[in-house]
């Protein structure tokens, strides 16, 4: 597994690494295919692709946390709790009903947003205090569900 923190030369952690923007620009100026002699362009393109990807990952709180946990060996097969799965189905049903009846979706979205923020805060708590990383990975896996739910609500809101 490629260490994207190392690629950008920033310390591993839950929070956005300080100086990441500066590092990205500094490395871009060195690596970008526009900035190297023609013979090195193919190689530079590969490096720049990895750099762009690393930067995108580390600038996003959820992706960054996922990557951090992956590097610590917690990734892939995460067992979601049955209660959570049931909750996702209920939430979704509620959303579908609200959509079908034309009810405003803001309240539903707000409650999911709150759950998302709380969950991410819990992950932060665990990670920064060197707690149970397996639990953190399970909590983090929930973020995808929240993101998907909110995408759907925002898709609807964008039309208005």
């Amino acid at each position: 597994m490629l260490d994207k923190f190392a690629l950008l030369g920033v310390p591993q952690g839950f929070d956005e690494p300080p100086g990441i923007d500066e590092k990205f620009r500094e490395l871009s100026r060195k690596m970008h295919p526009d900035r190297v002699p023609p013979k090195q362009r193919v190689k530079a393109a590969g490096q720049m692709t990895a750099l762009n990807d690393a930067y995108k990952t580390l600038k996003d709180p959820v992706r960054r946390a996922e990557h951090f946990l992956t590097l610590k060996g917690f990734s892939g097969e995460v067992k979601m709790s049955p209660e959570f799965l049931q909750q996702t189905l209920d939430d979704r049903e509620e959303l579908d009903e609200a959509k079908a009846s034309g009810k405003p979706l803001q309240d539903l979205a707000r409650s999911v947003r709150e759950k998302r923020d709380q969950t991410l805060a819990q992950v932060r708590e665990i990670v920064t205090k060197n707690g149970d990383l397996e639990k953190a990975a399970e909590l983090l896996a929930r973020m995808k569900y929240y993101a998907r739910y909110l995408d759907e609500v925002e898709g609807r809101e964008a039309e208005v």
Partner: peptide, 12 residues
Amino acid sequence: AYSALQDTEDPA
């Protein structure tokens, strides 16, 4: 439920 979670797997 399983596939809903599968579908949201990160492409990367």
